[in-house]
């Protein structure tokens, strides 16, 4: 009885699905975005690989790029000033950086909203108080917070590097709406962000490195890799130790297992 019922139910599902299979499909015009969209260029980052590490100097340069260019529109609200110690900044330097930002607070006499100078314990402030304010100021576009951007986009660091260096003239068959810019690395190809890196030497690096567009893009992508995954180095170091330990433990476990079973498996030595 069960099997007869099953046969009936099975046939019902199968016929329904096959009915769906034979339905004609509407012709779909090939998506022009798909043809023009490019995958980010592969970069050899210092953080790649099992022993990957951050280059402190590069992160500091990246922070400079962020501060002088990106921070006009993009916040890194999940990062605290104190976190900058990981970039190699000293405590007084961090204090000075923090003091350069205004942090919202309330006046402790009147209770009115006011601002105070930033402290190391504070986070980088938001640039717009909310999404509506951001869109109002940015012509309808929303500049995302960059704290997690390299984890929130496929192939993050490569994507950031390719996106900000990848602006190009739109091909003839592609119409870019007013106020947007053509960028083959952007999902919809039309990005609201104007090319942030206009020319070489747009900024002057404190450490004297030549600020080519590519260099600035690499540096800021490295910085944003850190903002998204500040524990990357600890993670990889712990991982190497954990796996080395587990391999030894597993080898010991295997030998113990063979020893326990030795008398049950009386088998040719060749196996």
């Amino acid at each position: 009885m069960i099997r007869l019922g099953a046969l009936g139910v099975g046939l019902l599902f199968v016929i329904t699905l096959l009915w769906g299979v034979i339905q004609p499909r509407e012709a779909v015009a090939p998506d022009p975005v798909k043809a023009l969209h490019k995958h980010p260029q592969e970069i050899e980052w210092t953080t790649n690989g099992v022993f990957g590490k951050f280059d402190r100097k590069q992160m500091q340069r990246g922070f400079q790029v962020y501060k002088e260019i990106c921070s006009a529109c993009h916040s890194i609200h999940r990062v605290a000033f104190r976190d900058l110690a990981a970039l190699g900044f000293s405590a007084p330097e961090i204090k000075a950086i923090a003091a350069g930002y205004d942090i919202a607070t309330i006046d402790d006499k009147t209770g009115e909203p006011t601002t105070r100078k930033g402290l190391p314990a504070d986070k980088f402030p938001l640039i717009y108080p909310n999404e509506i304010a951001a869109r109002a100021a940015q012509n309808g576009a929303l500049p995302p917070d960059l704290s997690l951007i390299t984890k929130a986009r496929e192939d993050g660091p490569n994507y950031v590097h390719s996106l900000i260096t990848g602006y190009a003239d739109a091909p003839a068959n592609w119409k870019v709406p007013d106020g947007l810019y053509y960028n083959p690395y952007f999902r919809s190809l039309n990005v609201a962000m104007p090319p942030p890196l206009a020319a070489d030497d747009q900024i002057t690096y404190v450490d004297g490195t030549k600020a080519t567009k590519d260099q600035m893009a690499r540096d800021v992508a490295t910085f944003l890799t850190w903002t998204a995954e500040p524990k990357l180095e600890a993670r990889k170091e712990t991982g190497v130790a954990a796996i080395a330990f587990l391999l030894i433990l597993t080898a010991l476990g295997y030998l113990s297992y063979r020893k326990v079973w030795a008398d049950v498996k009386r088998k040719p030595a060749a196996v």
């Binding site: 990889k236 991982g239 954990a242 796996i243 597993t250 476990g253 113990s256 297992y257």
Partner: peptide, 17 residues
């Protein structure tokens, strides 16, 4: 126990890398 060692090693590869 041996199987667990193999499992945890593979698990660590994903957790840490």
């Amino acid at each position: 126990f041996f199987g667990l060692g193999v499992y945890l090693t593979l698990f660590s590869v994903f957790v840490f890398f």
